[in-house]
Amino acid sequence: MKLSNNIIGILNFLTLLLSIPILVMGIWLHKQATSECDRWLEKPIIALGVFLLIVSLMGFIGACFRVSWLLWFYLLFMFLLIVLLFVFTIFSFVVTNKGAGEKLSDKGYKEYRLGDYSHWLQKRVNNNKNWNKIKSCLQSSQFCSLYHNQFANDTVDKFYTENLSALQSGCCKPSNDCGFTYVNPTTWTKTGNVTYTNPDCDAWVNDPNILCFNCKSCKAGLLQNIKGDWKKSAVVNIIFLIFLIIVYTVGCCAFKNNRRDNY
């Protein structure tokens, strides 16, 4: 058997083994799901497991048993995956090119404005259906409760020097524009009879289940997190893309071997 067939067979056998725990994890999450966050996560995991299982079987059988038509479909799927991954990588760089936190001269943390980010990302979080799911996840994870416990003993001066994350700054405290009086990290006293220019000030509520989850700053904090994650994933995608191109090239050699032997 030719070297290229051996390589494709081994790689797809390893991928086949990898797809089994991924699929099992997705099914387990489906049965254990108790929140909207869990239900959202299970679907892509199951889809990934099924995709890897089917493609790996096609590549393994096509290369090891010289089934040319299966190997042809395998190469077709690989080509489409390479194209999609390339497009997604370029897209992720484009949509995350805009947006950054605003530094405050007397604060250790930054503040985030929704309008600074790309229109495509803004449109996603401004969709009420999408945002209600995201907000439900943030609330059920008790994200701001953990933030409160972390900085509960801070005085106002100490709190202002803290290096808060984008989500903590955007969702768990009011905007600096509001000028509220600090009581504790999640409790702030509003100034009476004041007209605020920033609509987030009116949206702020001291209720731990509300806080600033309805604020634009919270959406901006989420987009800042997404921006960082997508930039990291884009680098990983480039490495993975190079690997896929190499595997695809070896697969083409295996396909030629199959056709030659069959002929």
Rank of each mutant, 00 (worst) to 15 (best):
N6F: 14
N6R: 15
I7S: 04
I7N: 10
I10C: 07
L11F: 13
F13H: 06
T15Q: 12
P21I: 04
L23Q: 09
G26H: 08
G26W: 04
I27L: 08
Q32K: 10
A33K: 11
S35D: 09
S35F: 08
C37K: 15
D38H: 10
W40G: 07
L41T: 15
E42S: 10
K43Y: 14
A47V: 14
G49H: 09
G49P: 13
V50G: 08
V55D: 02
S56D: 01
L57W: 11
M58G: 05
G59L: 07
F60Y: 11
I61N: 02
I61R: 04
A63G: 01
F65V: 11
R66W: 05
W69C: 14
L71K: 03
L75W: 02
L76Q: 03
F77P: 05
F79I: 05
L80C: 14
L80G: 08
L80K: 06
V83E: 05
V87E: 07
I90E: 13
S92K: 04
V94N: 08
V94L: 06
N97K: 14
A100K: 13
K103Y: 07
L104D: 08
L104W: 13
G108K: 07
Y109V: 00
K110S: 14
E111I: 12
Y112V: 06
G115F: 10
D116Y: 09
S118G: 04
H119K: 12
Q122K: 03
K123P: 06
V125Q: 01
V125E: 01
V125K: 01
N128A: 08
N130A: 02
N130H: 03
W131C: 02
K133P: 04
I134Y: 02
K135F: 01
K135T: 01
S136D: 03
S141V: 10
Q142F: 11
H148M: 01
N149I: 06
F151R: 00
A152V: 14
N153R: 04
D154H: 04
K158C: 14
N163P: 13
S165M: 05
L167D: 00
S169R: 08
C171S: 03
K173Y: 00
S175P: 10
V183T: 12
N184H: 07
N184Y: 03
T187F: 09
W188A: 02
K190S: 07
K190R: 06
G192L: 11
G192D: 14
T195M: 06
Y196G: 03
N198P: 04
N198T: 04
C201A: 03
A203E: 05
V205N: 15
N206V: 11
N206K: 04
N206S: 12
D207M: 03
P208G: 04
P208L: 02
C212E: 05
S217H: 03
C218H: 00
G221R: 02
G221C: 11
L223D: 01
I226N: 01
K232A: 13
S233E: 12
A234N: 07
A234T: 14
A234C: 14
V235C: 10
V236C: 15
N237G: 15
L241H: 05
L241F: 07
I242L: 10
L244A: 06
L244E: 07
I246R: 08
V247M: 06
V247Q: 09
Y248D: 01
T249P: 05
N257Q: 14
R260S: 12
N262P: 10
Y263F: 15
